[in-house]
């Protein structure tokens, strides 16, 4: 299986959360490069090779970790645009949010999210949750290769 190593894209506006998540993923010793963007617009730019990411290499992320509440374009809107896009609609998306609100859960699943994880306050739980998500979607999960 000759497989290109895809990135793990984290869209998270909170620097502290992002730092913790990146730390956790690094601690899991995954081969996938980690890309961090700070809002929804940047996330789409990355995936669609636009703006600052015009010149990045080919390939879709192995998994996208999306926060819901972000400036400019929130996570749910990003998810919606991904599912409407022929090239992006099969990329696994995990919502990583503080919100346990029913309405957020319902909308996420209606839009076809692959997993929804509520950020635990306990740091060790948070670490293990992010590590599990990374390992599962970036390593274990198989999905059809694009292009």
């Amino acid at each position: 299986m000759n497989r290109e190593i895809n990135t793990i894209l984290i869209a998270e506006d909170s620097a502290a959360d992002a730092e913790m998540a990146i730390d956790a993923l690094r601690a899991a010793k995954l081969a996938n490069p980690i890309v961090h963007v700070e809002d929804g617009v940047e996330a789409l730019d990355y995936m669609l090779h636009r703006g600052a990411f015009k010149d990045r290499g080919k390939g879709n992320p192995a998994v996208v970790l999306l926060d819901i509440k972000m400036p400019r374009l929130d996570g749910l809107e990003v998810l919606k645009q991904m599912r409407d896009n022929e090239r992006l609609k099969r990329i696994p998306v995990v919502i990583l949010s503080s919100s346990r609100e029913e309405s957020d859960l319902i909308e996420s699943w209606n839009l076809g999210v692959n997993a929804y994880v509520v950020k635990p306050v306990d740091v060790s739980q948070f670490f293990s949750a992010v590590q599990i998500v990374g390992q599962f979607w970036a390593v274990l999960n198989e999905f059809p290769q694009q292009e």
Binding site: D17, M20, I68, K69, S98, S99, E101, K119, P120
Partner: peptide, 11 residues
Amino acid sequence: VSHDLRAPLRH
């Protein structure tokens, strides 16, 4: 409250 107040606590 649920989103913003909990983030600093987590941090």
